[in-house]
Design a protein around this nucleic acid. Structure first.
Lengths: 183, 183
DNA sequence: CTAGAAACTAGTCAATGTCTACTTTAAGTA
DNA sequence: TACTTAAAGTAGACATTGACTAGTTTCTAG
């Protein structure tokens, strides 16, 4: 599909290299053809961001499902999956969290919500496990989202290396698990 | 200066609206003039990112200096200053942490290091205050950097509102202060 | 089989980044 | 003061791109 091609360009040559016309050329169609699918360049970027959120959410669920049920493993797998996505798709993650002048489109917002819901489910497992109380799930999920996104930002911007990011995940997860419940 | 103009455009209309030619027009010079100062559009963006890091570091130091010396206040002020910067300059912060195909330029890297050093100084105050041990400063600073950057990313991408971000800062700081020392 | 929608073609336009050769300005030095 | 040299700016050109339009082909569902 056209989006797969676009994703590959994004991955290999960054967002600046992503041009509707070149995409058309690679697909062997005329330069106006992509317009039938995306009104706009930004519509293409939105579609990519949307897919990114969905894929990231799927990868997190997948990773969590492949791990022994105890909460320490679960939260660690979730965080690792997120950062691993960031390492594999730095430009895409950037796009997903781009600071657009007028906020995200509805489609992107919904996809992002899906990721957030996934994280909420994961954190809810912590309640079952007695790691904290049900009333905290919302806030802790936000904190988890911020933490993994922050670590990812440090990696994608090359401020830290991948091994450093793994150590950082350990620190963050340890800290998450150790700090007790309550405001 | 030219960079001030560019920063204003970035703030008000986002990175896509930032054009060398329009900058030249607004400055009342010919379209090729900016080339004397910046070889490239990306050189302009690098210069903006560099200034951003320096300014953010300054604002953090400033905020910390305006607060009673106990560590809880210090770390909270630092985190608030960071996120406040993100709220005021979303596009600039995005630029500072952009996932460029070939990492950041040396100038940008140095400026980012300056910000990191600032955070290291701040976290070192926690050792004085007995909040944790000296050997942890490096890792905790990274964790702080990731956390504030993550919260900022959620705000700049409009995933959460500014008030939500303030509550999130509280949660993060509380968690930072409460969790005990040690790996 | 056919009507309508979806996908694509081809041409155009304005805007932009980049490059070049040339001129103007400024500053510092012999 | 006069001269040299570097910096800043001018003007023109070119390729690329996103966007728009009108017309054509292809597909599909009734």
């Amino acid at each position: 599909m056209l989006l797969d091609q676009a994703e590959a360009v994004l991955r290999e040559r960054g967002i600046d290299a992503l041009s509707l016309r070149e995409l058309a050329r690679e697909a062997g169609v005329s330069h106006g053809a992509p317009r039938s699918h995306f009104v706009d360049r930004s519509a293409l970027l939105d579609a990519l961001a949307e897919r990114g959120f969905i894929r990231l959410a799927d990868e997190m669920r997948e990773a969590v499902s492949r791990v022994p049920g105890d909460f320490a493993h679960v939260i660690r797998a979730a965080a690792s999956a997120y950062v691993s996505f960031a390492v594999r798709e730095p430009a895409l993650l950037d796009l997903m969290f781009a600071a657009k002048v007028d906020g995200p489109s509805e489609a992107v917002r919904n996809a992002a919500q899906r990721l957030f819901d996934t994280m909420t489910d994961i954190m809810s497992a912590g309640v079952q496990a007695g790691a904290y109380e049900a009333g905290e799930v919302g806030r802790l999920t936000l904190l988890l989202a911020a933490t993994v996104q922050g670590i990812s930002a440090l990696v994608t911007s090359r401020r830290i290396t991948t091994p450093q990011s793994e150590a950082l995940i350990d620190d963050a997860v340890t800290r998450f698990l150790r700090s007790p419940a309550g405001a």
